[in-house]
Design a protein around this nucleic acid. Structure first.
Length: 300
DNA sequence: CAAATTTGACCACC
DNA sequence: GGTGGTCAAATTTG
């Protein structure tokens, strides 16, 4: 995908945007076709799929090239405005106990999830700080924090859990935004809500960052109790080399149209209530449109 | 030898 | 008390 030159990419994006706008207009026409103001379910479904196709294509263009070898099936974003456990309250600053730091419970800032076939290399440096067997979960959950947590105070963390064996599927939950500057691929931001995803940071001309071995332990996590040596061996044997963008292009074409797993959704939550919103509906909202597509429009 | 990972323990919340 | 998130010593890796 990144092999598309800047102008070619821009043209492709413009075409997709044009197609999407046309589909939207078609939807309006269809909705006005019938007296009851509704189109046939089939027509509505078709329009929905067309819109989704455009949307997904644009999102794939937007995606981090380094994650191209991983199919991101799902992007879910929500706010968790629960603020009852502020960090200050949890950090028993007045207590004398020192041996361990204060154990801050789950931060309730905005979080978002991604599901992919392989752990996502999102261009940031992550350090694993924990692994936990989760009740009723087949695989352990892995905890990562930004490598620059201490030198730059970056509070970004993520949790990665393998949720499915066949096909292998990982769910990555991100917490907090990166505030560090030293990401491996700072111009590519998967974080859909990050201020950094504005055009000033977005560039599609980056070279790939090679898939980091840091992500490999997830694969070995499929074994409930892997030995250290087996971890390393599995990493080297099972992690495929990053495929070329051409490969990705073909792969996307082959799998994009009919597989429901490529459905991309955005979700938002109020008061921790999870509400799933189909992206084709979300995109009708101009604000959401800007949120999703603005970066494309400003590529130069 | 510095950085990263592993892993058991600690801690907060329910 | 159970569960899950985090810490930090021990260990591994490059």
């Amino acid at each position: 995908m990144e092999n598309l030159g800047g102008s070619s990419r821009r043209k492709a994006i413009e075409e997709l945007l044009r197609g999407r706008d046309s589909a939207q207009q078609l939807k309006s026409v269809i909705n006005g076709t019938y007296d009851d103001g509704s189109a046939t379910p089939f027509a509505q479904q078709l329009v929905k799929e067309v819109l989704m196709s455009f949307t997904n294509s644009l999102l794939f263009l937007h995606n981090n090239p380094t994650s191209e070898s991983h199919h991101v099936f799902n992007v879910q974003v929500w706010d968790s405005p629960k603020s009852e456990d502020s960090q200050e309250s949890n950090c028993k600053s007045s207590t004398i106990k020192e041996p361990r730091g204060c154990y801050k419970r789950r931060r309730t800032e905005q979080t978002w999830e991604k599901e992919s076939e392989a752990p996502i290399d999102d261009g940031h440096h992550w350090r694993k700080y924990g692994q936990k067997e989760i009740l009723n979960a087949k695989f352990p959950r892995n905890y990562y924090r930004c490598t620059h947590k201490f030198d730059q105070g970056c509070q970004a963390t993520k949790q990665v859990q393998r949720v499915q064996e066949e096909p292998i599927l990982f769910k990555t939950t991100y917490y907090e935004h990166h505030t560090c500057k030293n990401s491996a691929n700072p111009d590519i931001i998967l974080d859909p809500m990050s201020p950094s995803s504005s055009s000033k940071f977005l560039s599609f001309d980056n070279s790939f960052s090679t898939p980091s071995k840091q992500e490999c332990p997830f694969l070995s996590s499929s074994n409930n109790f892997p030995s250290s040596s087996s971890v390393k061996r599995e990493c080297k044997e099972e992690v495929p080399p990053s495929i070329s963008s051409n490969d990705y292009l073909i792969f996307s074409d082959l799998t994009f149209d009919s597989s429901p797993r490529h459905h991309v959704t955005l979700s938002s939550t109020l008061d921790s209530e999870y509400k799933s919103v189909d992206i084709s509906d979300v995109l009708y909202d101009s604000a959401q449109l800007d949120f999703v597509f603005e970066p494309f429009l400003e590529i130069r």
